[in-house]
Amino acid sequence: MTNLLPHLDPGAHHHHDRHCWWHHELGRWICDNPGSAVAPAPSSAKSSTDAPLVDVRDMIVVHTAMLREFRLAPAAVRRVADGDRKQAATVERHLALLCDLLHHHHTGEDELLWPPLRERLPASVVQRLDAAEDQHAAIDAALDRVADARRDFRATATGQDGAVLAEALEQLHVLLAEHLDAEERTLLPLAAAHLTEAEWRAVGAAGAASVPKSALLLVFGMFAYEGDPAVLRDMLREAPPPARVLVPRLAPRAYRRRARQVHGTAHP
């Protein structure tokens, strides 16, 4: 994945701060720091502070996990034998968790991420927020279609209802992949430059609070499957000391157990 936050790269010589601006059309940072060789950002895109960029890599970890699970979901549905209600219930339970995670993830962005960004971004960039909100609305509608298909599939476990659900999941995955790609390329760099650390942490805290306690280990294991270990450690930094030790050990086991149940392998 492209490194949108070069200040986190030990080999980077220039540390971006809030005087720097991500130009989504050029695909590069615009900086007016001393020694910078590129043009300055429009004054409306600047912050009045010299605070460093906020580390938004935890969002990449969440995105990676959700995109993987929704990509794998249609095949998991199709593997259910016609009439196998027990396996249909197992798969549907996993889908319910995924759909809830995605819904709450987007609710947190709608309530805590987009509003402060909208106040601080130049007019030329605000259209990117409008596009993201439109994508959220389309994904919400796709989630509704998946929810209807999930109910039918769980009740009947027929191949016909499974096919409907698998198709709805595929459509959702297409929308989600497009949205997350756009968000990571055009909006996360802006969030890193224009939000405070406290504001960013509030987004993550809202997402964590939405996860049922019974699913916390599983969800963290889902994140850890492909997540950056350094970012995962940082995600646990405010947890009690025993949790910081136990969760990295237990969470991957919880995910492997769920993966075997749903995908037929511990390493999907």
Rank of each mutant, 00 (worst) to 15 (best):
M1N: 10
N3G: 08
P6I: 02
L8V: 08
G11M: 10
H16Q: 08
D17Y: 13
D17Q: 05
D17E: 05
H19T: 14
C20A: 10
W22N: 05
H23M: 12
L26H: 11
G27M: 01
W29R: 08
I30W: 09
V38K: 02
A39C: 06
A51Q: 12
V54Q: 03
D55H: 06
R57T: 10
R57I: 00
M59T: 14
H63F: 09
A65M: 14
M66A: 04
M66Q: 12
R68V: 04
A75N: 10
A81R: 15
D82G: 00
D82C: 02
G83H: 03
E92Y: 04
E92M: 06
L98Q: 07
H103N: 05
G108W: 01
L112A: 03
L113W: 12
W114R: 02
L117S: 02
L117E: 04
L121R: 03
V126F: 03
V126D: 09
D130R: 02
A131G: 04
A147C: 09
A149K: 11
R150K: 12
R150L: 14
T156N: 12
T156P: 09
L165Q: 09
A166E: 11
E167Y: 13
E170D: 13
Q171H: 13
V174H: 12
V174Q: 12
A177Y: 07
E178P: 07
A182E: 11
A182W: 00
E184C: 00
R185D: 08
T186A: 12
L187C: 05
L188P: 00
A191E: 01
A193F: 02
H194L: 13
E197F: 13
A198Y: 00
E199T: 01
R201S: 07
A202C: 00
A208G: 05
A209N: 07
V219R: 03
G221K: 03
M222S: 11
M222Q: 09
A230K: 12
L232K: 08
R237W: 06
E238P: 06
P240A: 03
P241W: 15
A243G: 07
V245G: 07
A251R: 10
R253K: 15
A254H: 12
R257S: 13
R258N: 07
R260I: 01
V262T: 07
H263F: 15
H263E: 11
H267Q: 13
